[in-house]
Each structure stands twice: as C-alpha cells, then as structure tokens.
Simulated scan of single mutants.
Amino acid sequence: MRSTVIVFGGTGGIGAATVELAIGRGFDVVLTYADQAEDGIAAALCDRLGGCGAMVQQLRADITREDNIGLVFDRAKSSKSQLAGVVNCVGIDCTKRVAAELDAAELRRLFDINTIGTMLVCKHAAQAMLPRHGGTGGAIVNVSSMAVTIGGRSGSAAYAASKAAVDIFTVGTAKELASQGIRVNCVRPAMTLTPATLPYAKDPISSADIVRTIPMGRMARAEEIAAPILWLLSPEASFVTGACLDVSGGGFLVGMNRVDGISPGIAS
C-alpha cells in the first residue's frame, strides 16, 4: 500500500519544498493552503508534481477552524493510502511590534495560527494514526523557528513565544504518543529564503544584518529545511522523537567580537 503525507501550508517556501521532496521519495501528498489567493499556486504545483506518478491533492483549509482540519484528514483517508506523516508548515509573523506596542487582536491571530492550529493538527494526526482508531502509527513534524532560542529579533518576541510553545508541545506530545508508534518532532529553521522573507532578502541592509548572525554566512534554502523534515518522517529516524532539530547554519552569532574577518552579530 502507498503512503500519504499531509503537508499543512504546502504552497509556501518550506511547505512546497517539502511537498516536492515527499513526492520524490514516493509518497502521495495532501497539501493545504490558506486562501483563495493561493488557488492557482496549489493547482499549478499539483499539476506539475502529479506527472511524477504520485497522487497529489490540494485543499484550502483555515488552520484556525477545527472542522477544516478534520476535512483534510478525511481527504487523506479517501485516498485509500496509509497515512504515514503529517507536517505543520503553517505560520505567520504579526506586524513588527515591540512589547510596549503589542496589539491584542494581532496576538490572538498569531497564536491561533502558529500555536493552537498546530496543536489541533497534532490532535487529528494522533487520532488518525492511533492503532485503536485503525492507524498504524506514523510521524508528525512541526516547523518551529530558531527565533525561540534568542527570543526573536527586535519586534518579534511574540512570534518567538508562539513558536516556543510549539517546541514544548512537541516534546510533551511525543512522550504521550511514543508507546503508540507515533513519533513527534520539530525542526527549527534559521531565516530561510521563501516568498514571505523575500522583502528582507532583497533589502541590502536587512539582508546583511541577518546574514551576519548566521555562522555559515547565508540564509537557508527551502529545500535545506525540507530534507531534515523528510528524514524525520522516514524509518531512518525511527528512534527519534521529542527532538527539536536546529537547521540553522550554526545557530546565532550574537554580540561576538570580529575575529578572522567575521563581523559581529546582532541581537535583533
């Protein structure tokens, strides 16, 4: 029987790269996207990857609505393919605001998507994978952020907090589900080149400031994040659960003195 991977947020940079790599590894894929503006992107991605011989299905879903999440898992079941993995790539960053300027409505939306949405996806994934519900186990991978390790760059403390909650939830859920054959892990990317980060990458000053904080001296490519995600889904990671894997180019250079031509890092 073929195996299916569900990728929530499958049209974005990391999500789309994960979908493409999963197809290349022989999985069928159900991918989700957020709104009508992404209809064309999802259709084009499915058309292109469907030619590889796999089944690729797209579904618009609001991760803040549990009924939408349930429909995604129903779609996966209808494929008559065994659910093997679920990847949470959905995430937003609210308007850059320092603590003294935080907005309650923005915070609710941020946590509804980044934190509560991820938790609800894990809930439905666990239900689908539990042996007592007819599942055969599987793997869940949540996409967090290296921002949690420094509290976020300036104006992103709330974003970092929403992702830190994902880290803790990943570890706790992994302990709950380990005996049932379900592994739960997360990856923490550094700044990655995606459509969402393109404004930073195109701005010479912002780009230089970011790159100075990454020991490898560049931003990540989306496929460099997708590869460890697929590894965590694979049997090669069969004894890995409750892990937060830094995919960071070496972490952060913060407050370091210039040594051997390396510029000081920034704390923002």
Score class of each variant (00 low, 15 high):
R2W: 14
S3C: 11
S3M: 11
T4R: 13
T4M: 12
G9I: 04
T11Q: 03
G12P: 03
G13Y: 01
I14V: 12
T18P: 00
V19R: 04
E20F: 01
L21F: 13
A22S: 03
V29I: 06
L31F: 00
L31T: 03
T32D: 05
T32P: 05
C46I: 02
C46V: 04
G53D: 01
A54D: 05
L59C: 02
R60Q: 07
A61R: 07
R65N: 11
D67Q: 13
D67K: 13
G70A: 13
D74S: 14
K80R: 13
S81C: 05
S81M: 01
Q82R: 14
Q82E: 14
V86W: 09
V87Q: 07
N88D: 10
D93I: 14
K96Y: 08
A100Y: 11
L102Q: 11
L102S: 10
A104N: 15
A105H: 12
E106P: 00
L110F: 14
F111I: 09
I113V: 11
T118S: 06
V121K: 01
C122Y: 10
K123P: 15
H124W: 15
A126W: 06
R132F: 03
H133P: 04
N142H: 00
V143Y: 03
M146C: 09
A147L: 02
T149R: 15
I150N: 08
G152T: 11
S154T: 15
I168E: 12
G172N: 08
L177V: 02
A178G: 06
S179P: 10
G181C: 06
N185F: 03
T192G: 05
L193E: 12
T197D: 05
K202P: 04
K202A: 15
S207F: 14
D209V: 10
T213I: 02
R218Y: 06
R218S: 01
A222E: 14
E223Y: 01
A227R: 07
P228V: 00
P228Y: 02
P228F: 03
L230H: 08
E236F: 10
S238W: 01
F239I: 07
A243F: 12
A243E: 10
G251R: 06
L253T: 07
G255V: 13
N257H: 09
I262L: 10
S263N: 07
A267T: 10
A267F: 13
S268D: 15
